[in-house]
Every structure is written in C-alpha cells, then in structure tokens.
Computed example of a mutant assay.
Amino acid sequence: MGHMRHDSTTDFRARVLEILAAQALCAPADIAADATLESLGIDSLGQAEIIFAIEEQFDVTVPFNANTPQTSGIDLSTVAGIVAGVEALVRARRG
C-alpha cells in the first residue's frame, strides 16, 4: 500500500470506526460498513456521544436534531453513511 493522505477516505473510515467501536464495545474490525447503530447495540444516548466525538475528532459541526434524526446533515442509518457524512462535512469545512 502506498502513502495515504491524512484525509483519505480510508483514514476517515478508520477514525469513525474507532469512535463507533468505543460505543459498541467491540473492535473496529468487527464493524461492517452496512451495520446500523441499532445492530451494534448503540442507543440514542450512544448516538449523541458518537456525534460529539465526531465533532471533536474532526473539528466539524454535525447538524443533528435528536427529534428528527432523518433530517440531519449526516446519514446515521449505516456505518458507511456516517463515514460518508463525516467526509463530506470535513471537505465542506475546508472549502
């Protein structure tokens, strides 16, 4: 494998998986891209903690309302959606 840029999709994915694994109490390698937060045993409080961790780790603001999660600026339905959302938020912040 060649040198990866720090902001590569692989890097975003690895960092998001670490955050999710901490909440799910499992290893990042055990988390599939199509896994849902529910399937990982992550409840709404865990979801909020994930959002805070993402904001801190990536220096972004996640537009999220717990009352209407489906209208947030990030797809929280699957791990792949979360990774893509984080990547988009970081790229938008950088301009």
Results as ranks from 00 to 15, higher is better:
V16L: 10
H6V: 08
A66T: 09
H6D: 08
G95C: 03
N65W: 05
S72M: 06
G41L: 07
Q70W: 10
M4W: 03
I51Q: 06
T61V: 09
A66Q: 10
D7Y: 06
Q70E: 08
S8G: 11
R93T: 06
D59H: 12
G2P: 01
D59E: 06
S77G: 03
L17N: 15
P28L: 08
I42S: 14
P69H: 07
A80Y: 07
L20W: 00
Q47E: 13
D59T: 06
R94E: 12
G85C: 14
V83T: 01
A35Y: 10
T68G: 02
D75R: 11
N67D: 04
R13V: 06
V60T: 01
A53D: 08
A32I: 01
E49F: 02
G2R: 12
I54H: 00
A29Y: 01
H3D: 10
I74G: 01
H3R: 03
D34A: 12
E49P: 03
R5E: 02
H3Q: 06
S39R: 11
F64Y: 10
R93E: 15
I42Y: 14
C26K: 01
L45H: 08
V90K: 10
F64K: 09
V90L: 02
I74K: 00
N67V: 02
Q70N: 14
E87T: 10
I82Q: 02
E87Y: 06
A24Y: 00
E49W: 04
D7G: 13
L40H: 13
Q70K: 05
A21F: 09
S72N: 04
F12H: 05
L89P: 00
L45N: 02
R5L: 14
V16E: 15
